[in-house]
Design a protein around this nucleic acid. Structure first.
Lengths: 236, 236
DNA sequence: GGGGGGCAATGATATGCGTCAAGGCAGAAT
DNA sequence: ATTCTGCCTTGACGCATATCATTGCCCCCC
């Protein structure tokens, strides 16, 4: 299982200024720092599982996580990619229901757990934190609705190009300025696009043939950004 | 355009207990009651338009509204159905961006407008209202993510059955206990399901032939709920 | 009454994409 | 080395679904 250890400070957390808590009041941060428990999860480990009851929220200190629903037939649909500074598990907590998604580490990650009661009580007191939460929720909702529209209307080819851009936006590129800095299996890419694994593979090959990308195992290099954007056919 | 008139009280609004504001503090309700402007929108009128800047939130007093994105090729995707007691337009306001969806009245509706500054300032002060907003946002996000999974994984037939159930959940049935109490065009149903109009029509005819539903113009009667639920193949 | 416009319905056709099947390749295990 | 296992890749096939085209219906308007 995950290795727990105490991290004494939230005020000095490396992603303090990009996270929800950047707006929280100082005294509340101190309380969180005291109560939270940080753990390291290895690649492939599950942080929480669809159907389980939430006991708190998770704040990612370092690493990459995928959040996915498992559909009726067992196929997974990735609904969100999470990076350092993001929090997860708040939806279930706020609506007081069970998790509707499973969180799994895409690489070794260090994650802080903040107990439910503390989080909720601070949320009651701290208007800035509440507001920031609402901003995050709104933004996620906006993205989700856009994804709905694209799933309903765009062909797989466009969605794949869009997904590549989305991965780049989320996790960025390596030093060379071309390689996506996350390693996803073809199946995971397909589950992000919302298509069959074979279709994703075939289209990636096409993209490669057209000189838009380069493939080397799980490494994906974006060569011709202009063409990728054109293929994604974004206009809203 | 819409006909504006002043409605003196929010405290006595007919949907006060089912809306976000049911948890708001009394004094804040009074402030809202003073500042808000109520208008009647006729069927087909646009309340706000994708791309416009938000100046406040809308609270539906009575009526039915569709919220839709218009995709690249102009086809619309309905992302939410709104009923009395619901609010809309908060997403754009909270994330401080332009509207990403267009709101159009599905029937004559009476809608209150609450100015941006007032709404935001009350949100800062009123923790209960904030919390309620977060609950709503969480719940919408959950629904949106579920819809993403279904769009990606379920065939149109299942999604249509699911959509019929969703319309029933949202707007309920007429007195006969069978007829959906909203009139949608075939195109609107298709845009809700995320499919072509012809496909929606064909499958509705099939449902009818199988005795699941009855069609009479825009009236849809759900006859065999068990079979509809079975067809929707819900399990999460 | 007779057009005209919008919407519903249905058929014909095309195709994107999912599914099934088989083979290749690389890294792990023995 | 050698098997094994998991993942990637490619091909063949068929179906679900989009698209195009036509017809009919109903309601409104002149």
């Amino acid at each position: 299982m995950a290795t727990p250890f105490h991290n004494p400070s939230c005020q000095h957390c490396k992603d303090r200024f990009s996270s929800v808590f950047c707006k929280a009041e100082q005294c509340n941060l101190e309380q969180i720092a005291e109560a939270k428990v940080c753990s390291v999860y290895r690649k492939g480990q599950v942080i929480f599982h669809e159907g389980a009851y939430p006991f708190g929220v998770y704040c990612v200190n370092d690493g990459k996580i995928k959040l996915s629903h498992s559909g009726d037939d067992g196929r997974e649909q990735i609904v969100r990619l999470i990076k350092a500074g993001d929090i997860m598990g708040y939806k279930a907590l706020l609506s007081n229901e069970r998790y509707t998604a499973t969180a799994m580490a895409l690489e070794d990650s260090s994650i802080c757990f903040i107990p439910k009661d503390l989080f909720l009580s601070i949320l009651q007191k701290d208007a800035s934190l509440s507001f920031e939460m609402m901003r995050i929720l709104s933004s996620e909702l906006r993205k989700a609705e856009l994804k709905i529209t694209h799933l309903a209307q765009k062909p797989v080819r466009e969605r794949l190009a869009e997904t590549l851009l989305f991965i780049k936006e989320t996790y960025g590129l390596e030093e060379d300025g071309h390689t996506l800095s996350v390693r996803l299996s073809r199946e995971e890419i397909a589950n992000l696009v919302g298509t069959a694994t074979e279709s994703a593979i075939r289209l990636l090959s096409e993209f490669k043939k057209d000189g838009m990308i380069e493939l080397e195992g799980k490494k994906i290099r974006l060569l011709d950004m202009t063409e990728i954007i054109r293929t994604a056919n974004l206009q809203d």
